[in-house]
C-alpha cells in the first residue's frame, strides 16, 4: 500500500505538538520535526502550496504548544520557499517535475542528508535568532544552534523513514 504523505504530515504536526508539551527543553535545545516534515511533502507540490501548509502548520504548533505565536511559522516559511529549488539541486529536476516519490533505494542517503541539514539549519537559525531577540550572547546562540542541529538530524531519520518508499 502506498503511503499518504499529506496524512503523515498532519500526524507529525500533532506529534510535534506533543513533543513540545512533553519536553520543555529550554532555550539551549530546540526540538523540531517541522523542517524535515516540509521536505516530505509531495515533490510535485508548488512552492505556494508548500508555503501555505508550512505557514498554517507552524501557526497550529505555536497555538497548540503554547509557544510564541508566529515563531514557528516565521522560521518554517523560508524552508518551504526554497524547498523546490533545493530538491531540484539535491535530487533532480525530474523528481520535482514528475512528482516522483522519494526513496532511499533510488537516491541514497546523501541528498536526504543535504536537504535535511540545510532545511534544519535555516529553520534553527531563524528560530533561535528571533526567540533570543538580542537578549542572549552569540556564543550561547551558537551552542544552541549546534546542539539543536545535531539532535534534530538524529530525529529526522525516523521521520524520513515514515515518508519514504522502500
Amino acid at each position: 500500500m502506498s503511503k499518504n504523505p499529506v496524512a503523515i504530515y498532519f500526524l507529525l504536526v500533532l506529534l510535534q505538538v506533543v513533543l513540545s508539551h512533553l519536553f520543555q527543553t529550554g532555550p539551549l535545545l530546540v526540538l523540531t520535526l517541522l523542517p524535515v516534515m516540509v521536505l516530505g511533502l509531495p515533490a510535485e507540490w508548488s512552492t505556494l502550496r508548500c508555503m501555505s501548509v508550512a505557514f498554517f502548520s507552524g501557526l497550529a504548533v505555536d497555538l497548540m504548544a503554547d509557544g510564541l505565536v508566529g515563531l514557528n511559522a516565521f522560521a518554517l516559511l523560508p524552508v518551504a520557499y526554497i524547498r523546490r529549488f533545493l530538491m531540484k539541486k539535491a535530487f533532480s529536476e525530474e523528481l520535482v517535475e514528475r512528482g516522483e516519490r522519494l526513496s532511499w533505494k533510488k537516491w541514497g542517503w546523501r541528498p536526504f542528508l543535504l536537504c535535511t541539514l540545510l532545511n534544519t539549519a535555516l529553520f534553527l537559525l531563524l528560530y533561535i535568532t528571533v526567540d533570543a531577540a538580542g537578549t542572549r550572547s552569540i556564543l550561547f546562540s551558537l551552542e544552541a544552534f549546534g546542539l539543536s542541529l545535531a539532535v534534530n538530524l538524529v530525529l529526522a531519520v525516523p521521520v524520513l523513514a515514515l515518508y519514504l518508499e522502500k
Binding site: F55, G58, D62, V69, G70, A73, F74, L77, V130
Partner: peptide
C-alpha cells in the same frame, strides 16, 4: 508571521 511574533 513577524507581525504575530511582534504582537505576542
Amino acid at each position: 508571521a513577524l507581525a504575530l511574533v511582534f504582537h505576542n
